[in-house]
Design a protein around this nucleic acid. Structure first.
Length: 287
DNA sequence: GGCCAGGTCCAAT
DNA sequence: ATTGGACATGGC
């Protein structure tokens, strides 16, 4: 049982992890094991308190968004009635703050893929190139640092497909320091910087800015968000992604990315799209 | 078995 | 400035 604890009001570890923003976790009997950067963290949520081990309090709070004022954030989003259903479906959903390099690599890996496969691809890379890390009796491997991921042939053997060359080029640019400039840049400049990386265009850049750099205004438009936004706000008419981003920015401003995460998770879970949607199937027992 | 997946890139309009 | 196809692989 984890030994430290912290108050976590308006927070749901489960919703945060199940909403497809982070791929380095497992769950067993309510105990979550997470790999963030070079750290292995375990946690269990009991109501409004979180019991944890493997990180200091400051790091844990930053990682899980516990240092953000989500009471205010959610009150602000709640002014939009069109968001109520999604907001009510997943109370305590927050944006995590991931390691920038890992997050960049993860969302390059995510291109034209799906969450089970992405999770497996990343686990494979960690097993093949990462370092062993232990916490108590738990052992895992960290995600490879950029210098450990310079192996396109190896990545193709791990079935990363066309993403392999993107990953090695991203690793090279990361080693040259490209990710270190971003924190100090404006959203627009940061996005432009990220898009220098092959395999990083608008969508992946917005994911990295939202999930690693705390830019809560970033609004990644993937196939799910495209569908739900077109249905909810564009009368079902096809529109360019650019128009969707502009609409989101106009409507939700600095919190567009948080709205995005609710809509993403809700649209996938509600079974809004396709009879094969998640809601029409029994919930998987675990992952 | 075919369609689609948390897209991106490049070439041809 | 927009649009179509290629890219690897596998989940469903």
């Amino acid at each position: 049982m984890p030994s430290s604890s912290v108050a976590a009001p308006l927070f749901s570890l489960r919703h945060c992890l199940e909403s497809g923003q982070f791929f380095r976790w497992t769950e067993k009997d309510g105990l979550y094991t997470m790999l963030r950067g070079q750290r292995l963290v375990i946690a269990r949520q009991e109501g409004d308190t979180l019991r944890y081990d493997g990180a200091d309090l400051w790091l844990l709070k930053e990682f899980l968004g516990l240092d953000q004022d989500y009471a205010t954030i959610e009150r602000s989003l709640r002014r939009d009635r069109r968001l109520w259903e999604a907001l009510d479906a997943f109370p305590g959903l927050r944006i995590l703050k991931q390691d920038p390099w890992e997050c960049t690599a993860a969302f390059i890996t995510s291109i034209a893929s799906n969450i089970p496969r992405i999770t497996g691809n990343i686990a494979d890379m960690a097993r093949e190139y990462g370092q062993v890390i232990r916490l108590g009796s738990t052992e895992a491997r960290t995600f490879p640092r950029p210098d450990q991921l310079d192996d396109e042939a190896g990545l193709r053997r791990l079935k990363l497909g066309f993403r392999a060359s993107y990953l090695v080029q991203a690793a090279r640019l990361s080693r040259s320091g490209i990710l270190e400039d971003i924190a100090a840049q404006s959203y627009e400049d940061a996005k432009e910087t990220l898009m220098v990386i092959p395999g990083v265009a608008e969508k992946v850049a917005d994911c990295v800015l939202l999930f690693a750099y705390g830019r809560l205004n970033a609004f990644p438009v993937d196939t799910w968000i495209r569908k739900v936004m077109i249905r909810m706000f564009f009368k079902g008419r096809k529109v360019p992604d650019r128009a969707i981003r502009a609409f989101a920015s106009e409507r939700w401003g600095d919190l567009a990315g948080v709205a995005q995460q609710y809509l993403y998770h809700w649209s996938r879970r509600s079974g809004l799209f396709s009879a094969r949607g998640a809601a029409s199937r029994p919930e998987p027992a675990s992952r």
